[in-house]
Design a binder for these strands. Structure first.
Lengths: 118, 118
DNA sequence: TCATGGAGGGATAAATTATTCCCCTATTGT
DNA sequence: ACAATAGGGGAATAATTTATCCCTCCATGA
């Protein structure tokens, strides 16, 4: 694994959130898991732009941060399920706030972003 | 400036938010601007871990995305003020939700993150 | 015997983000 | 003359994050 050279600052709440939520696909992962798409393959289908690899890595981080729990069923072929932990569930309002804002302002955001790419 | 090689996906609300809010210091910038720390030098004092440069860059992006507006007073030495636009203000509930969650769970988050760095 | 399904890992390359360093503006005060 | 002030920008480089490719596991059905 990659080892950080610069230690993160953990002073304020926003620093802490950064550590836990700052990853390209993490919010989506939490969002979809919360919607009931629990299995890795489902999540990959829901987020086709992310490579399988990154999703695994980010899921593992979410797990280390105790936002999701992982159940491995001892069957072949393997079956795995992710669920929000109680702690993870406290994030639902946050994630909804984010997602809803994005949807409410979808058109405006899209045109702003396109414009900013000149 | 750096030119993206991979065009962003702008399908869903979460993609859009990503484009606009995904930057190491952006949420903090919005947070502090909302709290009334409007001038670049104040923001730099509030966020000492970020280099002056990145803050400028991220402020400019926030401006392009119409979340903040910039007033340049024609005086010497220069004086500049950032404010949330009306559009930016619609983000306040989102940012508060994020910041509050971070503060509420501060202790737990800190220890989880430290643990995950082994 | 061999492909399939579903999950996961290592190595490496590419993309992106952030940091460093150094320079510029123009006025006021020493 | 010259430092200080408040803001900004370019270039090069470092750090970090994502993407790509390819390989493993093992039971089951064709």
């Amino acid at each position: 694994m990659y080892e950080r050279k610069i230690k993160p600052n953990l002073n304020c709440g926003l620093d802490l959130i950064g550590e836990v939520l700052y990853g390209k696909w993490k919010i989506r992962l939490l969002w979809f898991i919360n919607e009931g798409h629990k299995r890795p393959s489902e999540l990959q289908r829901k987020i086709p732009d992310a490579s399988r690899r990154v999703l695994n890595i980010q899921l593992k981080e979410l797990e280390q941060h105790e936002l999701v729990s992982k159940i491995i069923y001892p069957v072949v072929p393997p079956k795995v399920e992710y669920n929000l932990t109680d702690f993870g569930k406290t994030l639902i309002p946050v994630i909804s706030a984010i997602g809803n804002w994005g949807e409410e302002h979808e058109e405006r955001l899209r045109s702003l972003i396109l414009k900013s790419l000149d």
